[in-house]
Design a binder for these strands. Sequence first.
DNA 1: CGTATTTGACCAGCGC
DNA 2: GCGCTGGTCAAATACG
Length: 236
Amino acid sequence: MMSTTSQTSVNHSLFDEQDQIPTQMGFTNPFPPNQAFPPLGCHQSLKSISAIVPSLSSEPASSAANFAETLFSTAVQRPREDLTSSLVGGGGEHLSLNRSRVNPWAWEEVTNCLMSKRMGGDDNHHLGVSAMKMKKIKARRKVREPRFCFKTMSDVDVLDDGYKWRKYGQKVVKNTQHPRSYYRCTQDNCRVKKRVERLAEDPRMVITTYEGRHVHSPSNELEDSQSTSELSNFLW
DNA sequence: CGTATTTGACCAGCGC
DNA sequence: GCGCTGGTCAAATACG
């Protein structure tokens, strides 16, 4: 049951919403088919990925625990050009991470989180640094909820991520033949939004962009109540 | 009939 | 200041 989840046809890539150049890291996708890569807050990602993977995958817990560490450290340490060139020959089931030019503070959060983790720093330190940078950024640009996007090869536009969404808009964006859809979380007091569109160069790829953080647990009930509760504990 | 989706209008940010 | 573009609103429509 759980051990089958590593066998999936869904290809996820966490990437820059504008650069849209997936960079492979060479990890087996631990998430079930048609289920989106968990929409995590950046600094929560480390905890969440390492916590969830052991419950979903047949991978040994030790390698799963290293998953997030390696994922983020590789992305942080390697120069962008190197990451891009390493994409050649991908084609497998990979998770990938890329620097975000659009959301620099989000990327900095990831970086700071990793650094503090490496240096034995605590979350307070990480949040403190992040808050200071946020303040500077806010001064020169409009405040925006933390957001990131990922790319999934899927026939369906709206992937099951455990939350209920209501569509509130659709827009044809420039230089794309596919419309972009706008969704809002249906939960009261939850201001999380997501955008869904198909990649112009490859319509098989669905680009999902999350903005904000859920203030509640996923609403749909999975058959596997154990993994549901784990997800509820760690996501957002 | 209540809820979700569609879609044109409107608004705000940004670049020139 | 103006025009372009993306994001949101809200009335109309569809659906169960």
